[in-house]
Design a protein around this nucleic acid. Structure first.
Length: 474
RNA sequence: CGGGGCGUAGCGCAGCCUGGUUAGCGCGCUUGGUUCGGGACCAAGAGGUCGCCAGUUCAAAUCUGGCCGCCCCGACCA
C-alpha cells in the first residue's frame, strides 16, 4: 500500500475518493453508480444506527418494515411527489419470466406505500399518533454518483408519522430535526445549521421541509438530514381520515424524515486530513488501537504487557490490539491513521520497563505518556478532548468562511472562493432561481436562529425580514 | 445527455506513434531467512482471454471500424 492519498489542496474530490478507498470504507461495485460498503464503513453506519435508534425509541417511535416494491399507481397518487421522484426511479416490469400487469417501482422513498397501509390502520383519533421508522435501502437513479454522497442505492432510515393535528405533526418534524442536529454535532462533531428549506428546495410532496446543513472543507454545503411536515397531502392522496374527539371526520397530518449513509461522507469531509480519515471518538467504531513494538529479545514481555493493557482498556473502550507479526510498527501507524482511529497506544520495551504506554492523537499527532494506573482515566479525557477539539475546529472553519453580504457583486466574488453567505432575500422563488442560474449557489436554508433584521433582497432589492444562507452544495 | 480521460497480472503503470521470438516494471502475494519506537531488507517463486467483436496483414497489445465498461468535470438530487 504505497499508494498516496492525493493532497486536499491539489484535488479535493480526488482526495475524498482516495480516502474512502484507502480507508477501506467502501469500494466501487460491478453495478454502475452503486457501491459496496465495506466493514470499516458499515461499522460507522452501525454506530449511527445505534445512536439514532435509541433516540427514536426514547421519543416513542417503533421500527417496522415496508416492501421494496411500490405499485406504479401508488407513486402517481400524489402529484408533486410523482413529479419529483418518477424521473429517478427504477421500475420493475417483469417477474417470473412474464411482463407484470402493473409495473413495480423500486422505492425511492416509502411515503406512498406506507400511507396506503395507514389507511387500513387509522380509524379514530385513538389510533394516533403512529410513529414508525424503518431502516431500509432505497434506489434513486442518479445521473452522477459519488461514494456515500450520492449513489444509486443507499441506506437510510425513514420515519413516517401520522398525527391528529398540524401542531402535533409540526412538533414531531422539529423534534426529529433536533435529534439529527444532536447526532451531527454532539456525536459526529459536525456543526450544522438548522433551518427551513425554501419552496423550491423542499421535498416533493411536503408542506415544509427542515434540514441540517454542514460545511465541508472545500466550503461547499452538504445537506445532512431532512425532516418534513407533509400536511394532509398524503392523507388526501390515500384517503386517510379519522374521526376526532369532536365527532368530525378529518384528514391525518403527516411527517417524514431521514438521514442516510451520506452522513459518512459528511464525516470524512468535515474532519479528514491528507493522511486520511479522522473519526471523532464518539462515532469511531474503534477508539483506540494498541500497537506493540518489540525486538526479538523483548517480544514476549511487550506482547504480554500489551495484552494486559488491552484487557484493561477493553472494559471501557472500543479497542483493538494489533499484534500482527507480518507488519512493522511504522506500517501499522500509517494504516490506522488512514482509517482514522482517534488514539494510538504505542507500547515498546521502554514503556514496559516504566509501566506506561504512549498515547498518540490521530488529529494532531500529539504524544503523551500514561502510567497503567491512570491509563483509563487519561484515555477517557483524551478522547473527550479530541471530540471537543474536532467540533471546535470544524465550527471555527464554518464561521471563518461564512460572510454577511449585502451586495450582489460581492456575493458573486466571495462565492467563487467557496463560502456560506448570509444575505437578504425577498422570499421570491424567481430571485432564488436567478441566483442559482448565475452563481450555482442555492439557499441552503432559512436558519431558525436568524436575527430579525430589515434589509433588501440581494437580487431584486425588495424588502426582506432576515438573512438566509446561500452556498454551493453537494 | 454534453465535454475530458482511461481500459495490459490483485493494484498502479510502461510498451502502441514506427506491427515481428518467451509482453515488461513498481507495489502487493507465496516460501525461507534477517528485521521491528514512523510505510523493513535479501533470496527464490506464483500470477496475463493485453476490455469485447470484427477487419487489414504471412504476423496485431500495437493499425482500422464498431461496441462495452469505468473514472473525472457540467445540467437533476439525500
Amino acid at each position: 500500500m504505497a499508494e498516496r492519498i492525493t493532497p486536499r489542496d491539489v484535488d479535493y474530490s480526488r482526495w475524498y475518493t482516495d480516502v474512502v478507498l484507502q480507508a477501506k470504507l467502501a469500494d466501487y461495485s460491478p453495478v454502475k453508480g452503486c457501491m459496496v460498503i465495506r466493514p470499516n464503513g458499515y461499522a460507522i453506519w452501525e454506530k449511527i444506527q445505534r445512536i439514532l435508534d435509541e433516540k427514536f425509541k426514547e421519543t416513542g417511535h417503533v421500527n417496522a418494515y415496508f416492501p421494496l416494491f411500490i405499485p406504479e399507481s401508488f407513486m402517481k397518487k400524489e402529484a408533486e411527489h410523482v413529479e419529483g421522484f418518477a424521473p429517478e426511479c427504477a421500475v420493475v416490469t417483469h417477474g417470473g419470466g412474464e411482463a407484470l400487469e402493473e409495473p413495480l417501482y423500486v422505492r425511492p422513498t416509502s411515503e406512498t406505500i406506507i400511507w396506503s397501509m395507514y389507511k387500513k390502520w387509522i380509524m379514530s383519533y385513538r389510533d394516533l399518533p403512529i410513529l414508525i421508522n424503518q431502516w431500509a435501502n432505497v434506489v434513486r437513479w442518479e445521473m452522477r454518483t459519488r461514494l456515500f454522497l450520492r449513489t444509486t442505492e443507499f441506506l437510510w432510515q425513514e420515519g413516517h408519522t401520522a398525527h391528529a393535528t398540524e401542531a402535533e405533526a409540526e412538533a414531531e418534524a422539529r423534534r426529529i430535526l433536533e435529534i439529527y442536529r444532536c447526532l451531527a454535532e454532539d456525536y459526529m462533531a459536525i456543526p450544522v445549521i438548522t433551518g427551513r428549506k425554501t419552496e423550491n428546495e423542499k421535498f416533493a410532496g411536503a408542506v415544509r421541509t427542515y434540514s441540517i446543513e454542514a460545511m465541508m472543507q472545500d466550503k461547499k454545503a452538504l445537506q445532512a438530514g431532512t425532516s418534513h411536515y407533509l400536511g394532509e397531502n398524503f392523507a388526501r392522496a390515500f384517503d386517510v381520515k379519522f374521526q376526532d374527539k369532536d365527532g368530525q371526520v378529518k384528514y391525518v397530518h403527516a411527517t417524514s424524515w431521514g438521514v442516510s449513509t451520506r452522513l459518512i461522507g459528511a464525516l470524512i469531509m468535515t474532519h479528514g486530513d491528507d493522511q486520511g480519515v479522522i473519526l471523532p471518538p464518539r462515532i469511531a467504531p474503534t477508539q483506540l488501537v494498541i500497537v506493540p513494538i518489540w525486538q526479538e529479545a523483548t517480544r514476549a514481555r511487550v506482547l504480554e504487557f500489551s495484552e494486559r493493557v488491552y484487557q484493561q482498556l477493553k472494559t471501557v473502550f472500543a479497542v483493538k490490539l494489533d499484534d500482527r507479526e507480518q507488519y512493522k510498527p511504522g506500517y501499522k501507524f500509517t494504516e490506522w491513521e488512514i482509517q482514522g482511529i482517534p488514539v494510538r497506544v504505542e507500547i515498546g520495551p521502554r514503556d514496559v520497563e516504566a509501566d506506561q504506554v504512549v498515547l498518540v492523537r490521530r488529529d494532531n499527532r500529539e504524544k503523551v505518556t500514561a502510567t497503567l494506573e491512570r491509563l483509563t482515566e487519561q484515555a477517557q479525557k483524551l478522547l473527550e478532548t479530541i471530540q471537543m477539539d474536532l467540533y471546535r475546529r470544524a465550527r471555527q472553519m464554518q464561521q471563518e468562511n461564512t460572510f454577511r453580504v449585502n451586495d450582489y457583486q460581492e456575493f458573486q466574488k466571495i462565492l467563487e472562493q467557496g463560502a456560506f453567505i448570509e444575505a437578504h432575500w425577498c422570499g421570491g422563488g424567481e430571485c432564488e432561481l436567478k441566483i442559482k442560474e448565475e452563481t450555482k449557489a442555492t439557499i441552503r436554508n432559512i436558519p431558525f436562529d436568524r436575527e430579525v433584521e430589515k434589509g433588501k433582497c440581494i437580487y431584486c432589492g425588495n424588502p426582506s425580514e432576515g438573512r438566509v444562507v446561500f452556498a454551493k452544495a453537494y
